[in-house]
């Protein structure tokens, strides 16, 4: 009896120790679904170059990642939007000093079904469509087909960014709330009446989609999110930085990984994944954040 008990105790002890160790050595990254594929690739190549470092990347949406950072459940939060003032205050209440690092640029792409003749829209028109003010494609010069909206759920940073930057109002209550970028792409591919928005990394190699050219206003030039110069220069009007939030100045494994992401190899991976490298202004910004 005594022997069994002691053996069990030792076994439990070992289990405890090993699990505690795994928890400590593993870098936890959580958040944006727009960023998840990119950061997973970055983590993979980082781990290849640095044996002994372990990184776990999970999704759930920017809001989910930021909430996890606030609650101390992850080391890095991926966010395709900025933290709201409310969230920053809440984080500091919990003793978390959230710092932002920009790791890539995204041309947020507006996509439609290839059987829809529309190839370009202005920001105003896109806003009207997603606010539910324009409900038929004929109103923007297309066929007489009612419009079906595909958007993200409210825990998505893309949902918030698109609303604040393009709609400047509420989404139509009739917009389908899809569970991730890939589902929007699938939905738009199957639905002739569809319009949706996703990060450019999700459509770069996709077939069976029209990626709309977008102009800031009716007289402006239409530009495509696939053109990296237009995204970097801001000629494509819905470009945005993709961010990671960390707690305090970067140290240890977090710093090592961030430096890798921002370095030459990391930015190469960014391009391979269909996003764009960070422009000079954000490089400066990152330097100020301690990188």
């Amino acid at each position: 009896m005594r022997k069994t008990l002691s053996v069990m105790a030792v076994a439990f002890g070992l289990l405890w120790a090993s699990s505690a160790q795994a928890g400590q050595g593993m870098l936890q990254i959580k958040g944006s679904d727009t960023l998840i594929n990119l950061v997973q690739k970055l983590a993979e190549s980082f781990m290849e170059e640095n044996p002994g470092e372990y990184i776990a990347v999970t999704g759930g949406g920017s809001g989910t990642g930021i909430a996890a950072l606030m609650n101390g459940k992850c080391d890095i939060a991926n966010a395709s939007r900025l933290m709201k003032a409310k969230e920053v205050a809440q984080a500091s209440d919990q003793g978390i000093n959230a710092k932002r690092v920009v790791i890539a640029m995204d041309g947020l792409s507006v996509i439609t079904n290839p059987n829809n003749p529309i190839a370009q829209l202005t920001i105003d028109q896109i806003g009207q469509i997603f606010r539910g003010e324009v409900t038929n494609w004929s109103e923007v010069g297309g066929d007489n087909v009612s419009i079906t909206l595909y958007g993200r759920q409210s825990n998505s940073g893309t949902f918030v960014f698109f609303r604040d930057a393009v709609l400047k109002g509420d989404y139509s209550q009739k917009m389908n709330r899809m569970n991730g970028n890939a589902q929007i792409v699938e939905g738009v591919k199957q639905d002739i009446s569809s319009i949706g928005y996703v990060g450019v990394g999700y459509v770069k190699d996709a077939t069976g989609l029209t990626i709309l050219r977008v102009a800031a206003n009716a007289n402006g030039d239409y530009a495509s999110p696939l053109n990296s110069d237009d995204v970097k220069s801001g000629k494509y009007p819905i470009s945005r930085p993709l961010n990671q939030y960390i707690n305090g100045s970067p140290t240890g494994a977090v710093k090592k990984f961030l430096e890798y992401e921002l370095g030459y190899t990391g930015q190469k991976v960014v391009e391979e994944e269909g996003f764009f490298p960070i422009p000079a202004e954000y490089e400066e910004f990152n330097t100020k954040a301690g990188l």
Binding site: A67, Q153, S154, N155, Q173, K174, M175, N176
Partner: peptide
């Protein structure tokens, strides 16, 4: 999962459970 009032069985709906699941995470 469109939050608008359902119009028919051929329109989108959003149940109590999916609302909790979508929003509790963030």
């Amino acid at each position: 999962c469109a939050p608008a009032m359902p119009e028919s069985f051929l329109g989108p709906v959003r149940t109590l459970t999916s609302s909790i699941a979508i929003e509790l995470g963030e």
